[in-house]
Amino acid sequence: MSRRESPPPPSPPPPPQLLGVRRGEVECEDRPERAEPLSDTEREIIQDTWGHVYKNCEDVGVSVLIRFFVNFPSAKQYFSQFQDMEDPEEMERSSQLRHHARRVMNAINTVVENLHDPEKVSSVLALVGKAHAIKHKVEPMYFKILSGVMLEVLSEDFPEFFTAEVQVVWTKLFGAVYWHVTGAYTEVGWLQVSSSAV
Rank of each mutant, 00 (worst) to 15 (best):
E89G: 06
M105V: 05
N114I: 13
V169Q: 06
G148T: 09
M85P: 03
V149N: 00
V111P: 11
V166R: 06
E89Q: 07
F161A: 11
V124C: 09
H100E: 03
F82D: 02
S95R: 14
K144C: 13
E160V: 15
K135N: 07
S122H: 03
R102E: 09
A131M: 09
V124A: 03
V149I: 08
A164E: 09
K137H: 15
V149T: 04
V153A: 00
M91L: 10
E156Y: 03
V149L: 02
V121I: 14
E113A: 15
F143I: 02
G175T: 05
L146Y: 03
A107V: 04
D157T: 13
G175R: 02
R98D: 12
R93M: 00
V168P: 03
E165W: 08
A131R: 12
S95E: 15
M141E: 12
V168H: 14
M91Q: 06
M150A: 11
D84S: 01
F82C: 08
N114M: 14
D87Q: 01
S95V: 11
N106H: 14
E139K: 10
S80D: 10
K130F: 00
F143Q: 02
A176Q: 07
Q167D: 13
D157S: 10
K135E: 05
L146F: 01
G148M: 14
N106F: 11
I145L: 08
G129R: 05
V124H: 11
L151R: 01
S80A: 10
L154R: 01
A107L: 09
E113L: 10
E156M: 11
R102Q: 06
F143L: 01
R102H: 01
P140C: 00
H132N: 02
L97W: 05
F82E: 13
S122N: 10
E92W: 04
S94T: 00
L154C: 12
L151F: 08
I134V: 15
K135C: 04
K130D: 06
W170N: 10
N114P: 13
A107T: 14
L97K: 05
Q167W: 12
I108P: 04
H99R: 09
S147A: 08
K130S: 10
E90N: 05
H132V: 08
M85H: 03
E160C: 08
G129V: 08
E119F: 14
V104H: 13
H132G: 01
M105C: 10
L154F: 10
Q167A: 10
E119A: 13
P118Q: 00
V124G: 13
V138D: 12
A126G: 10
F82W: 12
L173N: 00
E152K: 14
V138N: 14
T110W: 11
F174C: 08
A101R: 00
A107M: 02
V177H: 03
L146V: 01
E156L: 09
H100Y: 03
K135I: 02
G148E: 12
E86M: 09
M85I: 11
A133E: 01
N106P: 00
P140E: 03
A101G: 14
D157L: 13
L125S: 07
R98T: 09
Q81V: 15
A164D: 12
A126M: 11
M150Y: 02
A133W: 04
E119L: 10
L151T: 04
P159W: 02
H136D: 15
E156Q: 08
G175C: 03
F158E: 07
L173T: 01
V121W: 00
T163I: 05
W170K: 01
H116Q: 05
